[in-house]
Amino acid sequence: MAWNRDEQAARAARELQDGFYVNLGIGMPTLVANHIAPGIDITLQSENGMLGMGPFPYEDEIDADLINAGKQTITELRRSSYFNSADSFAMVRGGHIDLSILGAMEVAENGDLANWMIPGKMVKGMGGAMDLVAGVKRIIVLMEHNSKSGEAKFKTECTLPLTGKGVVDMVISDLAVLARPAKGEGFRLVELAPGVTLDELRAKTEGGFAA
C-alpha cells in the first residue's frame, strides 16, 4: 500500500519549517500547500512575481491580473508583495528561497534532475525550473516512483536532458523517501511508505541508495 498523491504531499509538508519561504512547482507539488501543519508559518513564492500567495479565489473574487506560475487564478494575503520577473529570480538565484518542491521525469543517484523536455516529443520549455534548482537552498522532488510503463524514475543516470546537475536533496515518491545529507553525497533510505518492503523498493529502483 503505497502513498497516494495527497499522502505524498503531506509527507513533503513535514519538511517545511516555520518561517520558510517556499516555491512549489506545478502539479503534485501545489498540493503541499494543503498540508501545512498548524503553527508552521510559510510564505509561498510564485515566480511570476509574488510573495505571499493566497488560496484560490471565490468566484466573485477572480482577478485576471492575479495568477500563479501555473496560470491559475489566486488571491493575495495581508503579507503579499508583487515584483517584476528579474526581482523574482533575484530571490531565486540569489539563494533567498529556503525550499523548492518540484516534479520530475527522472532523478539520478548523483542528484541530477530531468524535468523539462523529451527530445522529439515534448517541447514545452524549462520555465523557471533551471533557476530554482541552481539557486534555492534545498530541492525536494515529488514524483511517482515508476513511470506509467513501469520504468524506474530514480536512475543510475538520467537519460533525458538535464534541468540541473547534482541538485536534488530529497526524493519523495509513492513508495519511499530517499535523501542525502549534503550535495555530493549518496542517497539513503529515510522512510518506506506503509506496506512497502525494502525488497520491493529495490526491485522497483534502478539508482543506488544506502538502506
Binding site: 515566480e47 517584476n84 520577473s85 528579474a86 523574482s88 529570480f89 531565486v92 538565484r93 541530477d112 524549462m126 520555465g127 523557471g128 525550473a129 533551471m130 533557476d131 541552481a134 539557486g135 536532458p161 538535464l162 534541468t163 540541473g164 546537475k165 547534482g166
Partner: peptide
C-alpha cells in the same frame, strides 16, 4: 531559463553586455 531571460533583458536595458550565472550549468543551455 526564465530567470536567465529576465536577467538578460534587465542587463540589456542597463547597458550590460553579459553576466555569469549558475543557472543551466551542466545542461543543454
Amino acid at each position: 531559463p526564465q530567470g536567465t531571460l529576465a536577467e538578460r533583458i534587465r542587463a540589456g536595458g542597463a547597458g550590460i553586455p553579459g553576466f555569469y550565472t549558475k543557472t543551466g550549468v551542466g545542461t543543454l543551455v
